[in-house]
C-alpha cells in the first residue's frame, strides 16, 4: 500500500524531471532557431527565447552570403543523398538476399567479413581510397561519395536486411520455386515487396547520415561549385565568423530542416531500425 502512495506521488516528480531534462537538452537548438530571427547584437545579449524584433533579413543575407546561393548547395547535397539512397537500396538488398537465402561456398567466412566491415572506420581506408579516386579523376565530382554505396559498402544495412529477410516465411520462396521461379524472380517478386519496412529504415538512415556526413565530403569536394551543405557551412564559418552570426544561424537552421522532417515522418522506422539491430 505504501509503495502505491509513493508511486502516485513520484509520477508527477518523474514527469517534471523528464520535462526539465528534455527542455535543457533542446534549449540550445530552440535558442538557435529564435536567434536566427534576431539582429546580431541581440544574439549575444539575450540568452532567452522571447523575440523582441523579428528580423528575417538574416535568411536572405545568409542565402546569398557565399559564392553561390545556398540553394545550390542544397541541390548538391540532394543529388549526393539520392545517389547514396538508391545505391544502398539496390546493392545492400541484393547482398542481403544472398546471405539470408542462398547457400554458397565459404558463406560463413564471407558473412564474418561483412560483419567485420561494419566496424571498419572510414579513416582507415580514406588515404588509399583517395589516391584511387584521384587517379580516376573523380575528385570534385560526386562519384567518390556515391559509388561506394552502389558497391554495398554500408554493411550495416546488409545486416539489417539479412535480419529482416530471415524473419520472412520460407514457404513463400519454396512455393515460388515449385512454380519454376529462379532466384532473381523470387527476390524481385516476393522478397523485395515484403521488405518494405527494412527498405524504409535504410532510406531514412542513409538520408540522415549522408546529409550530415562531413569528413568525406570535405576531402572530395574542394571546388566551391561542388560544395554540399556541410562543406558550404564550414566555409561560411571561415568567412564570416566575426561579422554575422545571424545569417550563419539562419543557414544552420535551413540545413537542419531536412533532418528534422526525416525525423518527424520517419520516426517509426528510425526507432525500429535501431531497436532491431541493437536489441536482442
Amino acid at each position: 500500500m505504501t509503495t502505491d502512495v509513493l508511486r502516485r506521488l513520484s509520477a508527477p516528480a518523474k514527469h517534471a524531471g523528464l520535462i526539465l531534462l528534455g527542455f535543457v537538452m533542446l534549449y540550445p537548438v530552440l535558442w538557435m532557431v529564435v536567434s536566427s530571427l534576431r539582429p546580431d547584437d541581440e544574439i549575444f545579449r539575450s540568452p532567452g527565447l522571447v523575440l523582441d524584433t523579428l528580423r528575417t533579413e538574416n535568411y536572405s543575407q545568409g542565402w546569398d552570403a557565399l559564392s553561390s546561393p545556398f540553394g545550390h548547395y542544397l541541390i548538391n547535397s540532394t543529388i549526393v543523398v539520392l545517389g547514396c539512397i538508391i545505391g544502398n537500396l539496390v546493392s545492400c538488398s541484393m547482398a542481403a538476399y544472398a546471405f539470408a537465402r542462398l547457400e554458397f561456398t565459404g558463406k560463413r567466412w564471407w558473412f564474418g567479413i561483412m560483419l567485420g566491415t561494419i566496424m571498419l572506420p572510414i579513416h582507415v581506408i580514406i588515404v588509399p581510397q583517395y589516391i584511387l579516386f584521384s587517379q580516376l579523376d573523380w575528385v570534385n565530382t560526386f562519384l567518390p561519395l556515391i559509388v561506394p554505396k552502389i558497391l554495398a559498402t554500408d554493411a550495416f544495412f546488409i545486416f539489417l536486411m539479412v535480419q529482416f529477410i530471415r524473419g520472412l516465411p520460407r514457404e513463400l520462396d519454396e512455393a515460388a520455386r515449385i512454380d519454376g521461379c529462379g532466384h532473381p524472380r523470387i527476390f524481385l517478386r516476393i522478397v523485395l515487396p515484403l521488405m518494405k519496412p527494412a527498405l524504409a529504415t535504410t532510406t531514412i538512415f542513409t538520408f540522415i547520415w549522408t546529409w550530415n556526413d562531413f569528413f568525406s565530403q570535405l576531402i572530395y569536394l574542394t571546388d566551391p561549385e561542388m560544395y554540399t551543405v556541410p562543406v558550404a557551412l564550414r566555409s561560411f564559418v571561415d568567412s564570416t565568423v566575426s561579422t554575422s552570426w545571424g545569417s550563419l544561424f539562419a543557414m544552420n537552421v535551413v540545413s537542419l530542416v531536412p533532418i528534422f522532417l526525416a525525423f518527424l515522418f520517419g520516426q517509426r522506422y528510425l526507432v525500429r531500425g535501431i531497436a532491431t539491430t541493437g536489441g536482442k
Binding site: 547457400e103 581506408i125 588509399p128 558497391l151
Partner: peptide, 30 residues
C-alpha cells in the same frame, strides 16, 4: 545443402567489388 554458388556470385557481385576497391583492398594498400 544444395549450393547456389552461381546465383550467389551475381547477387554479391557489387559487394565483392566494394570489398576489393573500397574497403578491404584499400586497407591492404594502405
Amino acid at each position: 545443402r544444395k549450393r547456389d554458388n552461381k546465383a550467389a556470385f551475381w547477387f554479391l557481385a557489387p559487394w565483392f567489388a566494394g570489398l576489393l576497391f573500397v574497403t578491404i583492398g584499400p586497407v591492404a594498400a594502405s
